[in-house]
Design a binder for these strands. Structure first.
Length: 429
RNA sequence: GGGGGGGUUCCAGAGCGGUCAAAUGGGGCAGACUGUAAAUCUGUUGGCUUUCGCCUUCGGAGGUUCGAAUCCUUCCCCCCCCA
């Protein structure tokens, strides 16, 4: 199966320029996607682009990951209603390095003619003078052409009418120049990205055509959505990051496990490397017994292992079973300390003076007091009234007193708000 | 430079001298139901105390008033139109 066919059945093609498939069949082709270095870790929103590169490489082509050290300093107006904050040069450098390290988990940077490469557009933009850019690049593209792009139109005449700065307006040209540069320096003939990048990518192919007479191509994938219309990759707590410092493997696993049926069916094609047959079989099984959530489990397993590790995956499953399975106070109490800590890795931890527990402390004061497990006593009281608080998996009321009998391993207390929010309280001293 | 419209609690958006911690919708959180789902229904959504009550909040700073988110002064910011 060739690259385009592969992406097609996975539902990863939104649009592509005529001739793209032919180009890919003709020869080993170098293609790139851009990654905005807005943080020092990738999040799962980036994973789609990375998977495109992965499939590209598996099909024998050469992937480039362009880390936008320069474009990141400007900000893409696509999809944004407002101009965004600019990052400092230091932050950008730090982020670029961190992202490089993460990409190495997904792509082969070592072997073969088609080994992956990372490029940073800051390297070639840094010394490009403003005047130079105007003379060499700007004159090839008309303002009329640039204004016709949706990303620009929306900002000028859309309902929001936020206005856009000249800097933002220029973004597509700068990105277009990246493509031109890579075309000339690395024989890169294809740019890929999310469908919101179409306009930016075509500015690049246009620039290449006008300036060199050469032909380059564009391929975009649909924006990942959720069936309920929410934003993909976000939870109440924010982005789902690849870096375990920001999103623990347990939370990461849980995110995928909690996908809706419709989403899981879509995501498993996009984010895993499972074959069409394997996925079809899983979907079939899922239809028979939706409550078993085989699809979600397979999805969560595959991604967790690839992003983290087999061991992290097993730990996450174990934790999930203890927390959501038939876990009771008894099973909690019997858990050895090291297992307990592993299970609750990534769960917020609070330290409290041993004395307070031994003399008994009211639940409201414990949760809403100085520890700030919950924001305030008012909130603690409210949650208690709603029946939303459990201690060691037992629901408790407002007048519950926490004392030494609640301790797990003589040291820990598991507090729970609702079904999914856990807090571990540890005594000290 | 001229003219106009705005800045309200997470967001949108009412309020326009007291009955306003501030309508309504969205979102969030929680409960029931369930598949750790969706849909639905219910409760809740500034802080302290929970009984009355108190404190902080309506762009910033002053002022008028017994009393202001609501009136006045001044400053800051945003948007639109014209030059």
């Amino acid at each position: 199966m060739n690259f385009v066919e592969e992406l097609k059945w996975r539902g990863m093609i939104h649009d592509m320029m005529p001739g793209t498939e032919e180009q890919l069949q003709k020869e080993m082709t170098t293609a790139y996607v851009g990654i905005d270095p807005t943080a020092d870790s990738l999040h799962i929103g980036h994973l789609v682009s990375i998977m495109m590169l992965k499939h590209l490489q598996r099909a024998g082509h050469k992937p480039l990951a362009l880390v936008g050290g320069a474009t990141g300093m400007i900000g893409d107006p696509s999809g944004k209603s407002q101009e965004r904050n600019m990052l400092s040069e230091d932050d950008l450098n730090h982020n670029v390095e961190a992202i490089k390290a993460q990409l190495k988990k997904f792509l082969d940077f070592e072997t073969g003619e088609n080994k992956a490469e990372i490029v940073n557009n800051y390297d070639w933009m840094r010394d490009f003078s403003f005047l130079g850019f105007l003379r060499e690049i700007g004159k090839h593209i008309t303002v009329n052409y640039m204004m016709a792009k949706d990303s620009v139109k929306k900002r000028i005449s859309g309902e929001a009418r936020e206005g856009l700065s000249f800097t933002e307006f220029t973004y597509q040209l700068v990105q277009g120049y990246d493509f031109l540069f890579l075309y000339q320096e690395k024989n890169c003939k294809l740019q890929m990205g999310g469908s919101d990048q179409w306009g930016n990518i075509t500015t690049g192919t246009e620039l290449i055509r006008r300036k060199t007479g050469g032909e380059a191509f564009a391929l975009t994938c649909p924006l990942i959505t959720k069936a309920d219309g929410g934003k993909f990759g976000k939870t109440e707590k924010g982005n789902i990051w690849l870096d375990p410092r920001y999103t623990s493997p347990y939370q990461f696993y849980q995110f995928w496990l909690n996908c809706s049926d419709a989403d899981a069916e879509k995501y498993i094609r996009i984010f895993t490397l499972l074959s069409k047959n394997e996925i079809d079989a899983l979907v079939e099984e899922h239809l028979q017994q939706p409550h078993v959530r085989k699809l979600q489990k397979a999805l969560a397993k595959d991604i967790t292992i690839r992003v983290h590790s087999e061991k992290d995956y097993e730990m996450a499953v174990e934790a999930s079973e203890i927390l959501f399975g038939k876990g009771t106070t008894e099973t909690l109490k019997n858990l050895p300390e090291n297992v307990l800590l592993d299970v609750f890795d990534g769960v917020p931890m609070f330290d409290i003076d041993a004395q307070q527990i031994h003399s008994g402390i009211n639940i409201v004061d414990l949760l809403g007091g100085d520890l700030q497990v919950l924001k305030s006593k008012g909130e603690a009281r409210r949650a208690l009234k709603e029946g939303g608080i459990s201690i060691n998996k037992n629901k408790v009321g407002e007048d519950f007193t926490v004392d030494a009998s609640c301790l797990l391993n003589n040291k820990y207390i598991l507090a729970q708000r609702g079904k999914k929010n856990f807090y571990l309280i540890r005594i000290s001293g």
